[in-house]
Write a protein that binds this DNA or RNA. Structure first.
Lengths: 273, 273
DNA sequence: TAGTCAGCTTCCATTGAGCGGAAGCACGCT
DNA sequence: AGCGTGCTTCCGCTCAATGGAAGCTGACTA
């Protein structure tokens, strides 16, 4: 970089992004020193860059000196298609499912080898589970994950199974062969099931959201307390919702701006403070 | 900057952020040229920086060449306190409200002179309205906005009223004096009301979420079709939810990581693809 | 088939923005 | 008073960033 840097070949942008990447769900607030350590940057450099990110509100700083992800970055992130299109379209259907069941409703997409949770609805009566919006969980131990995996290309399934398969409970399917068989069953059956494979005490069903060739893979699932025995009865409802979401997605495939707001009234610029 | 730049005194970080800032809800996808124009940067510079942002998945690029906000930026943004704490805590209470009413439920914070929508629940039976998560709307024409404004410091209210007050419908309160009176009433009454002030056909009630001195101001509201005449009847329910949210917020004030996930199992790094 | 244009990609000589060690602060703890 | 930890500021050195220009691609036209 410009200047007398230790490591050559790193870009300023890369460093700034490393700062953002230093945050995760277990570290949502960091001091300057922690930030520097986690991003592997000198303190002075971290200080300078963090100040610039703070000025834009990509980071915010608490009174007690802790850095956090800033409001403006949150706003920018919401413009990602998973949120501004997928979530927006799926939410009402997810609400209907929630109303009908009062259980945890999950919407996930496949990203790399993870199931990435795009939306989660849950009320006070739902089983508490670890999923959160933006969380990544493995595909072999979750309902939405298995629905995604079972409907992926053959080569992808093979690649997935060749990686280590972490075990979370004694019910997790962590053996290659069993997983492959389970996935075949899942694909034939048309929906995925889990029974205490991620968390003891909770079970789930999930279905793939049909998508065109090339579009990201999506799935929709329900997680309930394991005493509920009638889970498969929910599958038709779930499938209807998934199909409806798929339909709305293709219908609106080339609306640039989501929703009905094309020419907004003269609102503020979004640069408040 | 380093190099033969046209404008001096601009930082690389600033330029990268300008690229992110070029996106908004009416422009969620941009070609390279549009991006360059909107960020006011030379094409070659834009190209280079956009490629770096894309490598980190702060931006994603469609097959057709359009840039969009990337998955990773979305993930990072979700770590902002409004999402990882406020939304997480408020959601179940909002679900309860939704179940009870099946109407649009809004959670907003005050940011600058805007009401910033942090969460919105709506089903198929709710009135369609323009609010969206991450949207900013004026405070004098929305329910949650008036609830925020009426409970702000005197000086802030004065400052707000001295700015132009855009009118959206013929019912919008766009006159200084009337607005001040309305806000006084709102504060005394303890809840805000709007009747077709933002959108014809929809009305709302909203209450402030009590917060400690220094903490960001929050409000909670319901928007219904204007034929529903029993709106004020919903206020007690709304107030209970708001108080419950406030209680949970103070109770968990110094949990660094939200939720129950402190030491996660060995999940993937979130850098999939 | 050649010609034009708009938008994207690559190249590379030039130079000031970025660098980070070091010194200076501001705490809290003993 | 003395120490330790963490934050902030300073500043001379240098190479990463810059962007005009040339090349490329594909769509449309004549």
């Amino acid at each position: 970089m410009a200047g007398n840097s230790g490591k050559q070949g790193q870009s300023v942008t890369g460093r700034a992004l490393a700062l953002l990447g230093a945050f995760d769900i277990t570290h949502p607030r960091l001091t300057l020193s922690e930030l520097a350590r986690r991003a592997d940057l000198p303190l002075a450099t971290t200080h300078r860059l963090a100040a610039e990110l703070e000025a834009w509100r990509a980071l915010d700083r608490d009174d007690d000196g802790y850095y956090r992800i800033g409001l403006r970055l949150w706003e920018a992130g919401l413009l990602a298609p998973v949120s501004s299109r997928l979530r927006e379209i799926a939410l009402p259907f997810m609400q209907d499912l929630y109303e009908a069941t009062r259980e945890n409703i999950h919407l996930a997409v496949r990203d790399g080898f993870d199931a990435l949770y795009v939306e989660k609805l849950s009320g006070h009566q739902s089983v508490p589970i670890i999923s959160r919006i933006g969380t990544r969980l493995p595909m072999h131990s979750t309902g939405v994950g298995k629905a995604l995996l079972a409907n992926a290309e053959e080569a992808f399934i093979k690649a997935y199974c060749e990686r280590p398969l972490p075990r979370f409970t004694r019910y997790t399917i962590a053996e290659r062969g069993r997983l492959l068989r389970e996935l075949r069953n899942t694909a034939e059956r048309g929906y995925a099931r889990t029974t205490e494979e991620m968390t003891l005490g909770s079970c789930s069903v999930a279905v793939p959201v049909p998508s065109e060739q090339g579009a990201p893979a999506i799935s929709l699932g329900i997680v309930v307390h394991s005493v509920r025995a009638d889970l498969p009865k929910l599958v038709p409802t779930l499938r209807n919702a998934a199909n409806a979401i798929a339909r709305r997605l293709t219908e609106t495939a080339d609306d640039p701006a989501p929703g009905f707001l094309h020419d907004l009234p003269p609102l503020s610029t979004g640069n408040g403070r």
